[in-house]
C-alpha cells in the first residue's frame, strides 16, 4: 500500500509543478505588473525602471519563477492590487464559507445519488427510473444561476421560508443554537442548487455502475442461492459498484468548485468563488491567481485521496 501511495504522491507533485508553471505563466501574461498598480503615475520612467530592477521584475522568466515558488512555499502569496492587504490572509478568510457550502453539498449529493442510483438500477425502465433519469438530464441542462434565481423566487421571495442571500443574519447577532439554525437556514437554498446539478451527474453514473454489477455472474449465483433481492443489492452489488463511484467522486471536486463560483455570486455567499469573481472584475490578479492555485491544489489533493481510497478498496490496483 505504501509504495502505491508514495508513487501517487510523486505523480501528484509532478503535476503540481506543471500547475505552478501554468499559473505563473498566466500571471505573467496578465496585462500590467505590480509596478503599474502600486505606483504613482507621476514617477519618472528612469525611477520606475530602477525600482523594477531592484525588485527583480526585469529578470528572465525562469528566475522570477524560482523566486515566486520560494515565496509561495513560505506562504507569501503577494499583495492584493485592490486592498494592498496580503493575499494569503485575504483568501484564507474566505475558504471557510466555501468549504461549508461545498462540504454540505458534497455530502448531500453523495447520499442522494447513491440512493437514487441504486433504486433506479434495481428497477430499470420503471416509472421511477424514467422520472429520475429525466430529472438528471434536466439537472445537467439547467444553468445553475437560473436554478438559483428560480429557487430564490419561489422559496425566499414568494414563500419566505428561506433568506435570499448571505451566510447568516449579522444584524440579529445570534449565538449558540440560534446561530447554528440561522446558518442552516441560509445554507439550504445554495446547497440545493449545487446538489441539483451535482447529483444529476452522479446519479446516472451510479445507475450504470450498479446495473453493470447486477449483470455479473456472482449476482446470478447469489440470486439462485435464494438470497433476498435487498441483500443482493446491499451486500454484493453496491459494494462492488462503489469502485467507479470513487473515481467519479475524485472528479466531482473541480465541478463543485466551479459550481461554487456562480452559486456564491448569486447568493452573496462570502466564499472563495465569489472572491474570484470580484477579483477578476477588479483586475486584482494576485488574488485571482492565488485562488486558482489553491483550487488546483485542492483538486489534486482530492484526486489523490480518491486514488488512495480506490486502492484501499480494490487490492488489484495496488499490485499493478
Amino acid at each position: 500500500m505504501l509504495p502505491f501511495v508514495l508513487n501517487r504522491v510523486a505523480q501528484g507533485a509532478v503535476i503540481l509543478v506543471l500547475v505552478s508553471f501554468v499559473a505563473f505563466g498566466i500571471s505573467v501574461a496578465a496585462p500590467g505588473n505590480a509596478m503599474q498598480t502600486f505606483i504613482d503615475p507621476n514617477v519618472p520612467p528612469e525611477q520606475l525602471r530602477a525600482a523594477e530592477a531592484r525588485l527583480g521584475l526585469d529578470q528572465p522568466f525562469y528566475v522570477q519563477y524560482v523566486r515566486w515558488v520560494g515565496e509561495v512555499a513560505r506562504g507569501n502569496l503577494g499583495y492584493s492590487f485592490r486592498t494592498g492587504r496580503p493575499v494569503a490572509a485575504f483568501v484564507g478568510s474566505r475558504i471557510g464559507p466555501t468549504f461549508l457550502l461545498m462540504g454540505t453539498a458534497f455530502a448531500v449529493t453523495l447520499v442522494l445519488a447513491l440512493w437514487l442510483g441504486t433504486a433506479t438500477a434495481a428497477r430499470p425502465y420503471s416509472a421511477l427510473d424514467y422520472g429520475v433519469t429525466g430529472a438528471a438530464f434536466a439537472g445537467i441542462s439547467v444553468p445553475s444561476f437560473f436554478t438559483a434565481m428560480a429557487l430564490i423566487y419561489v422559496f425566499a421571495l414568494r414563500l419566505g421560508w428561506f433568506p435570499t442571500s448571505g451566510l447568516e443574519d449579522y444584524a440579529a447577532g445570534h449565538t449558540g443554537i440560534a446561530l447554528f439554525l440561522d446558518r442552516l437556514r441560509h445554507l439550504v437554498l445554495p446547497v440545493t442548487v449545487l446538489v441539483l446539478t451535482g447529483a444529476a451527474e452522479l446519479v446516472r453514473h451510479v445507475r450504470s455502475a450498479v446495473l453493470e454489477e447486477l449483470g455479473q455472474d456472482y449476482v446470478r449465483t447469489a440470486r439462485s442461492k435464494g438470497v433476498s433481492e435487498r441483500a443482493v443489492l446491499r451486500r454484493h452489488a453496491l459494494r462492488n459498484s462503489l469502485l467507479p463511484v470513487i473515481t467519479l467522486v475524485g472528479v466531482a471536486l473541480p465541478r463543485l468548485l466551479a459550481g461554487s463560483v456562480i452559486t456564491e455570486t448569486v447568493f452573496a455567499w462570502p466564499g472563495m468563488g465569489r472572491l474570484l469573481v470580484e477579483s477578476v472584475f477588479a483586475r486584482d490578479y494576485p488574488v485571482a491567481m492565488a485562488i486558482n492555485m489553491l483550487a488546483a491544489v485542492l483538486v489534486l489533493a482530492g484526486s489523490l485521496l480518491a486514488d488512495v481510497l480506490y486502492a484501499a478498496v480494490d487490492p488489484r490496483v495496488r499490485y499493478s
Binding site: 498566466i26 485571482a288 491567481m289
Partner: peptide, 22 residues
C-alpha cells in the same frame, strides 16, 4: 498528457474567468 492533466486540474470556470479578464 501531463500538460493536459495540469490544465485540467484547474476548475474550468476558474481559468476561463481569469483569462477573460485579460
Amino acid at each position: 498528457s501531463r500538460f493536459a492533466d495540469a490544465v485540467s486540474t484547474f476548475p474550468a470556470l476558474f481559468l476561463i474567468l481569469t483569462v477573460s479578464s485579460f
